[in-house]
Amino acid sequence: MKDLFQYTAGDSVIHKLNPLTRILLAVAVCAAAFVSDNLYYLVGLLCFDMLLGLLAGVFGKALSLLKGLLKISIFLFILQILFVRKGNRVFWIITDQGLILAAKVVLRLMIACIPLALMLAVTQISDLANALVQVAHVPYKYAFTVTTAIRFIPQFMEEMADIMEAQTARGVEFDTKNGLKKIGMMLPLCVPLLVTSVRRTDAAAAAAEARGFELRNRTSGYKKYPFHWCDLLAVLVCAALIAGAVII
């Protein structure tokens, strides 16, 4: 799970896009998913998600994301079909409209979750920060705060996994099937996680300061983030996705 957020190096088409274009692409897919009300179009968008994963060379990650979302999707799906009463009865208390509505909700959830995670997996956080500062003129301090938060996610997840392992070693049964019970057991562990996090964040801030954090400005970046023809193409794809969602 934790390597989902870890950067995957490569030289795919997606890697060549401007970091901002990649984020735009992810946002556009999400937007299209929420605008569109057509079941087939939604299925198409999900396919597009997987295509992005394939293009970026992280199809495996896309699949495991999909797998991870499946559990919660099934739960949502069942909840939906049990509560929607409109439409013709198909089976027991389940109606055709209920089935369609449930499918749409679940599809939207999956479509919206996958692309952002995928784009983060193929985008270096520092590139994103640099591009935000250079191209979008975001003040470095804000860009740094956002990117640091993202950078710490895998570290925290790793830390949490290690803490849970340490607790398992002393006999706390995390392998229970009862989800609520598991959450109850995890709560006390937030204390060590918090203590470590505060210490870490402070150390990270001191280290960044020592290497001239405060001196950084828009012209500091050594790497440039120009827009290429493929970025233009990607923007067109974004526009097409949203237009398609509105029309169909």
Binding site: E159, I163, A166, A169, V172, E173, V191, P192
Partner: peptide, 24 residues
């Protein structure tokens, strides 16, 4: 073997005590 069953016989001391300590 179940975790709790095994933990009765085997103790594990980690390199980093902060992962284990969670009480005040």
């Amino acid at each position: 073997t179940r975790v709790s069953e095994r933990a009765r016989h085997v103790g594990y001391l980690f390199q980093n005590p902060d992962r284990q300590i969670c009480k005040n």
